[in-house]
Nucleic acid binder design. Structure first.
Length: 530
RNA sequence: GCCCUCGUCGUCUAGCCAGGUCUAGGACACUGCCCUUUCAAGGCAGCGACACGGGUUCGAAUCCCGUCGAGGGUACCA
């Protein structure tokens, strides 16, 4: 399948339904579509699948569009931007579907079925009992006006069903799966229009694709089995189907089952997934966001935006979930992703979502940023957490910058900057990690005496810069025949309350002499208090 | 049940179409060591896979058949 030859006429689409959240698997599908459009200079169409009559369409759609904007997946036609093939809301296209239904009926590709639900149910049960596939008996099919009148006189209403062939087979070439062949006889006469006149997904989707001139339908594999009936609709409408590409699903961690936002509890049993989830929850909590469990989790794109992930990292990771360029390329810039993408490279089997691997992409992208860039990403988090004024004053900005610089690789997602709350709390309300305090200050013999001694040394230390502090510490330990480790840990716990963190000299330099001394004093007081 | 699809390290994958260069390569994770003021990061090393069974062939991860396993579909859902 050489889609490179398809040229500039490529038109692809993604049809989100306004549910209020953007699913990670959906993003992967959208990404592949977008990439294909950009690769060929074609158009990426966003079409809103709102046939279910949403009450607050805006509320349900906006988070999804926001997700697309954040990721940089811009659409050429669709909500907000319009386009020549609109409207782009299915709820506004009902008349178009109606015309298509009539065409199908006229051509004999579909028929009116006056069967009552209980009659269908009985037939289906009978077929199942006999272990036969069921596909509508057409006993209540009406092709002529007389038949319709007769059924209607009985008080029956009708739906429109596809008049599927009962012989031969449907063959098509899928750009990912290759040749697929399905016996027509295994296809049921699917309903395309309900008794109330509303149309079903298969019909609406095909009609929209036809009307919007879609050239490549790139969608999840769950639609592969639905393809024959859609091909029947395409042909019934007098057009040949576009290029079809069915992407393997994005699966649960360590499994092949499609990732679903409803199975959070199950995913949390996966340690890696739980770790990612906790990281995000911690950040969201500090930002004061009431993160409801069903909308704030790693299956939903908002999770990453709110936690401070880099869109490029997410995109890069997602692109490699089911696609690869060669045996070793992992990092691809935005331009490279567009330049290299091809349906040829798409895998056939499901790919499970790996939180750790995603995190590793995030780390690599974060490491590639300059300190200033990281600072720009982190500052809004500190502001939103209310730790500094908004906007931050120059001195507070300098402090955040110093923290970001000192933290280095430890800040993996921008929200991780919120791990360093100790730099923003008053000296007298710093909280101590009990275990660390016990281990480093209370328990070791002579620890408090040493701490007192270094406190005095620091009181008269020349200046509070990392290099100078290092000199002070080195001479302090050298004079006592100790290793640096003998004092560093106690001081760290005393001034930050924690056992871990970045370099001690950076910590002290950011805190400054006054806070350092105050905190050591407080720790000493606490230690002697028992 | 029936239909469709898929099956290489725990995970993402390269290799398969055009069989030998594959004692199967890379990445994440994991383990160990080094570095080191803790934690990260980094460096080095290690662990680890062709689902199974037949066949074709001098030779099969690669081609053919079967089995098993997995996923999806089977709605007046999308």
């Amino acid at each position: 399948m050489n889609d490179h030859a398809a040229g500039a006429g490529v038109r692809v689409r993604f049809a989100p339904s306004p549910t209020g959240y953007l699913h990670i698997g959906g993003v992967r599908t959208a990404l592949f579509n977008w990439l294909l459009a950009r690769r060929h200079g074609g158009a990426f169409v966003l079409r809103v699948d709102d046939t279910d009559a949403q009450r607050n369409l805006d509320d349900a759609l906006e988070p999804i569009l926001e997700g697309f904007r954040w990721l940089g997946l811009d659409w050429d036609e669709g909500p907000g931007v319009g386009g020549a093939r609109g409207p782009y809301f299915q709820s506004q296209r009902l008349a178009i579907y109606q015309r298509a239904v009539e065409t199908l009926l006229e051509r004999g590709s579909a028929y009116r079925d006056y069967a009552r639900p209980e009659e269908i149910q009985a037939e289906r049960a009978e077929a199942e009992a006999a272990r036969r596939p069921y596909h509508a008996s057409r006993r209540w099919a009406a092709r002529t006006a007389e038949e319709r009148a007769r059924f209607e006189a009985e008080g029956r209403t009708s739906v429109v069903r596809l008049a599927m062939p009962r012989e031969g087979s449907c063959r098509f070439v899928d750009a990912v799966k290759g040749e697929v062949e399905v016996e027509w006889a295994s296809e049921a006469d699917h309903v395309v229009q309900r008794a109330d006149g509303s149309c079903l997904y298969h019909l609406a989707s095909v009609v929209d694709d036809v009307e919007m001139g879609i050239t490549h339908v790139v969608r999840a594999e769950e639609h592969l089995s639905n393809t024959p009936r859609q091909i029947w609709i395409w042909r019934g409408l007098g057009v040949e189907p576009p290029v079809l590409a069915h992407l393997p699903v994005v699966a649960e961690p360590g499994s092949k089952v499609k990732l679903s936002k409803r199975k959070l509890d199950k995913y949390l049993k996966n340690p890696q997934f739980a770790g990612l989830y906790e990281r995000g929850r911690t950040i969201a909590a500090k930002l004061g966001r009431e993160a409801a469990a069903d909308t704030f989790n790693p299956v939903i794109v908002d999770f990453y935006r709110i936690s401070g992930f880099l869109p490029d990292a997410l995109l890069n990771y997602l692109m490699l979930l089911g696609w690869s360029l060669d045996s070793e390329t992992e990092i691809l810039s935005g331009e490279e992703r567009i330049a290299h993408f091809s349906l040829d490279g798409v895998n056939k089997s499901p790919a499970s979502f790996d939180p750790d691997k995603l995190l590793s992409f995030q780390e690599r992208y974060m490491q590639a940023l300059s300190i200033d860039e990281r600072f720009a990403l982190c500052l809004p988090f500190v502001e939103q957490a209310g730790w500094v004024t908004t906007p931050a004053t120059p001195s507070l900005r300098a402090k955040v910058l110093a923290i970001v610089a000192a933290a280095g690789d430890r800040i993996k997602v921008a929200g991780d900057v919120l791990d360093y709350e100790e730099f923003f709390v008053p000296d007298d309300s710093l909280e101590y990690d009990e275990k660390a305090f016990e281990k480093r200050i209370r328990k070791p013999n002579g620890a408090t005496e040493l701490l007192r001694a270094i406190r005095d040394a620091l009181a008269s230390a020349p200046e509070f810069t990392p290099p100078s502090l290092e000199v002070s510490f080195q001479s302090f330990v050298a004079a006592r025949g100790l290793a640096l480790g003998a004092i560093v840990h106690a001081v760290r716990v005393a001034v930050t309350g924690k056992a871990v963190g970045f370099g001690l000299f950076d910590i002290l330099s950011i805190l400054g002499r006054e806070a350092t001394l105050a905190r050591i004093d407080r720790a000493l007081a606490l230690a002697s208090a028992g």
